[in-house]
Simulated scan of single mutants.
Amino acid sequence: MQCSLALLDAPQPHLEDTSQLLGEQDPALEGLNNITRFAKAQTLDKRRLSELAQQYGIGGVVRWQPRKVENLQSSGIDLVMAHTIYAIVGAVSLQKGGDVARQIVRERILQPLGLR
């Protein structure tokens, strides 16, 4: 949800005048074109989240036994790290509430991934 809200607030890419194609648009709907499956998938890609988790040192505290110790990629390290970030956000939300979780997602996850 926070990713969608951040994409909604993100500046729109400059395209040729689309007002003729779309007609006049309500200003409240300006960022709606930013929210696409592709944009969300690109932002929350498991590899990007895994790199972020590694930067925070999460890999050192996760209790996980890889299938192939010599090849973590084929064992699914990216998916494990991405889901670990999701689990941490869920735990913060349960313990501290939605406002704190929202702030953490914005400052610690989305901002380093390039969304404000």
Rank of each mutant, 00 (worst) to 15 (best):
G76S: 03
N34F: 13
R47W: 01
I109N: 02
R102P: 00
R102N: 13
L5K: 08
L52F: 01
L22A: 10
H83R: 15
P27I: 05
D26S: 14
N71W: 03
L115S: 08
T18H: 11
R47Y: 01
L21W: 12
P27Q: 04
P66E: 09
G23S: 07
G114N: 02
T84S: 12
L15G: 05
S74K: 06
H83S: 08
G57R: 07
E51H: 10
Q73P: 02
L49Q: 05
L113I: 00
E107R: 11
A41P: 00
K68N: 09
I77G: 03
V92I: 15
V80G: 01
R67T: 12
P11K: 07
I35W: 12
D17T: 01
M81G: 01
L110E: 04
L79Y: 07
Y86Q: 13
R67M: 13
K96V: 01
Q2P: 02
P112L: 01
S4W: 07
Y56D: 11
P13M: 10
L44Q: 03
S19F: 05
G57L: 07
V89D: 02
D9M: 10
A6W: 03
V80P: 04
I85M: 14
Q73K: 13
Y86R: 15
I88R: 05
Y56W: 12
A87E: 12
R47D: 03
Q103E: 14
R63A: 14
G60V: 09
N34H: 10
A39M: 06
E107A: 07
D99E: 15
V92A: 05
E107I: 05
G97Y: 10
G98I: 11
G31L: 08
K68V: 04
N33H: 12
F38I: 09
V105K: 04
G31Y: 13
L113M: 06
Q95N: 08
A101G: 02
H14L: 15
E70D: 13
K96M: 12
A28L: 14
E30K: 15
P11V: 09
Q55L: 06
K40R: 07
L79S: 12
V80W: 03
I85L: 15
D17A: 09
I58N: 00
E24N: 12
L5N: 02
R116W: 03
R67H: 14
N71Y: 03
V61S: 12
I109R: 03
R47C: 04
K96F: 12
I77Y: 00
R47I: 07
I109M: 08
G23Q: 01
D78M: 01
Q73W: 01
I88Y: 09
G97P: 05
R37N: 14
H83A: 01
L94Y: 04
L7I: 04
L29P: 04
T43C: 10
G97F: 03
S50M: 02
E30A: 15
E30W: 08
S93F: 05
G23C: 02
G23Y: 07
Q2Y: 13
V100Q: 08
I109F: 04
A6S: 11
E30R: 14
Q20K: 13
Q25K: 15
W64F: 04
K96T: 00
I88L: 14
A6R: 06
Q25H: 12
G76F: 04
H14V: 15
H83P: 02
V69Y: 02
Q95A: 11
S75W: 05
S93P: 00
E30M: 08
S50E: 00
K68L: 10
A41V: 07
T84P: 01
K46V: 12
A41L: 10
